[in-house]
Amino acid sequence: MSETNELLSVRNAKKSFRLGGLLSTKEIIAVNEVSFTLFKDKPDILSIIGESGSGKSTLSRLILRLLLPDSGNIELEGKDVHAMKGRKQELDYMRRVQPIFQNPFETFNPLNRVDEFLLATAKNYYPGEKPELTKERVEMALQAVGLSLSEVGGRYPHELSGGQLQRSSVARAIIPNPKILVADEPVSMVDASLRMSIVNLFQDLKNKLGTSIIYITHDLATAYYISDRIAIIHKGYFVEQGETAPILTNPKHPYTKLLVESTLDPRPGATSLADGDISTGDEEYLAVGCKFAARCPRAMDICRKVQPEETIDGTWKVRCHLYGGNI
């Protein structure tokens, strides 16, 4: 088992939630038939892109073991993560997969000093080590994000700027030298200028430490900027996945096209703004057939009846009746 090259493999993961009250039978499948793999020999930044309410965060919670999938499995280096039991295995898992949260101001306890929190984290992962060694680990993690213990030492979260705080929260995550970081909307709360510093940091971590990053966002511009691979998620399904640049410059799935068109081009008047019903609520989850059919400009009869299968078209995977000879 240990010679597998698969670092993280998600196979047909599915998670559903019941909608409405106790007796309701309506069900939405927030993550459905999702499969992807990260490899050991090639650190990757994988962007998972979708609108709000498309199942992005549910997927990240499944990977982080915060939710149990209904079916399918998630394996870390060949071991099912949801079969891990007991403190030792859990710690072992947390050493390898670490989350980065959306809001840095909520990551830290406002009443605790940032450095104390980081030291406690290091002690947790490496119990019984000499204090000097623990300190060194924290120092190394801070150095990797462009900070140092002397900068954050003795400071409370409110005394640091948003950028320093988000960097500290990344430093917290890399203390145990994880193989994978799961970053759920890490830049949606921060300013445009700060955004680039965080995104550049992810790229550095990948290049210098060989950490793979699952970058969950709805911002296509930064995803294009840093990620190697991309997966577009729509109402629980991966509708398109493969290498970032070809997909975003030449999208196949009509949903990806909609997202690309909606991304604002930062040049005066370069984006045509829509005025109409291009967004939607959760009702799409309940659609039979392709969930996007109701909004799709190219929808055919079959789209409203049959859920398309994932097929390979050219060099990447797409889930749409227009491709792969499904017509």
């Binding site: 979708g50 709000s52 911002d219 909609l258 909606s262 703004l273």
Partner: peptide
């Protein structure tokens, strides 16, 4: 998100 943003700005 980007889709709602474009719609709202429009």
């Amino acid at each position: 998100d980007v889709v709602v943003q474009r719609e709202t700005l429009g």
